[in-house]
Nucleic acid binder design. Structure first.
Length: 268
DNA sequence: GCGACAG
DNA sequence: ATCTTGTCGC
């Protein structure tokens, strides 16, 4: 009798984690809110019943950078910008050693913990700049199970979130080439954003040309407690360059911190 | 069956 | 994600 070859424990463990992750996403997804659900207003200055302090001001952005020397060493960064001036109101970061690998579709299990800790720390200290809304470097519902990093963080932190992808995650038949076609089509040539409609007919988000006539779009999808319409508007208003400013600032600062860490490690 | 696949 | 300088153009 042939014994089945011993399965490398590595693959058994990763299979088990994989199932656990899917279950976790399914459970958390039941709490997802896909419409505007916040107390602040967007442009209330001229409206009747305007109350100062109710308007959107604190827009957060999160990102993670990795060390080129040791890919498990990372720096999570949280910034908060003023929605109107786009000036940085707050910044914090944290170095971590990540044990969880990157697996497409499960980014949250690798990156969310650090980012949530940064939010937690800010909330515990009653910081007046605690974000009213968070832009996340990674997708929202544009995800195989409709629950990407932005949704994950939104639900667990109970915060409105928007997902920003710099590359398309292939979902529901959406591919790089279908998007290229849509962006290149005559009737869309002047639009700055187009709906991402999958084979099923579901709208997963939009591809947006943040810069006039730019070729490479960004992919916007809702995270939590916000509608796609509102999300698009907020992204447009925070885009000085291709990537919205809160995420861009988090990215820049995150890289700086990693660079400093590597320098100190080498200088001895 | 094989490949694709956010960061 | 990361490896990477200068360079062409508005």
């Amino acid at each position: 009798m042939e014994e089945a070859p011993e399965e490398p424990s590595q693959s058994r463990d990763s299979w088990r984690d994989h199932q656990t992750w899917i279950t976790t996403q399914d459970i958390l997804r039941e709490k997802l809110i896909t419409e505007d659900s916040f107390s602040w207003k967007l442009s209330s200055e001229g409206e009747p019943g305007y109350k100062k302090g109710e308007e959107l001001r604190c827009v957060g952005g999160v990102d993670i950078s990795f060390s080129k020397d040791d890919p498990s060493k990372a720096c999570g960064t949280l910034v908060v910008l003023d929605f109107h001036t786009l000036q940085v109101l707050y910044q914090d970061f944290s170095f971590v050693t990540l044990q969880v690998p990157y697996v497409p579709g499960f980014l949250a299990f690798r990156e969310a913990p650090v980012l949530q800790q940064l939010l937690e720390k800010m909330k515990r200290s009653d910081n007046p700049f605690y974000p009213q809304l968070l832009l996340v470097d990674g997708n929202g519902i544009l995800h195989p199970r409709g629950f990407g990093l932005a949704c994950h963080i939104g639900v667990e932190a109970n915060l409105p979130t928007i997902g920003i992808g710099k590359n398309l995650h292939h979902v529901d038949g959406l591919t790089h080439s279908t998007v290229r076609k849509l962006l290149g089509a005559e009737e869309n040539s002047s639009k700055e954003f187009i709906n991402l409609v999958g084979c099923s007919g579901r709208i997963w988000g939009v591809a947006m040309r943040s810069t006039q006539g730019s070729i490479k779009p960004i992919f916007i999808s809702i995270g939590h407690m916000i509608s796609l319409q509102t999300a698009i508007m907020i992204v447009q208003k925070t885009c000085k360059f291709r990537v919205p400013e809160p995420i861009r600032q988090a990215d820049i600062r995150s890289r700086d911190h990693i660079r400093n860490l590597e320098m100190n490690g080498k200088v001895t």
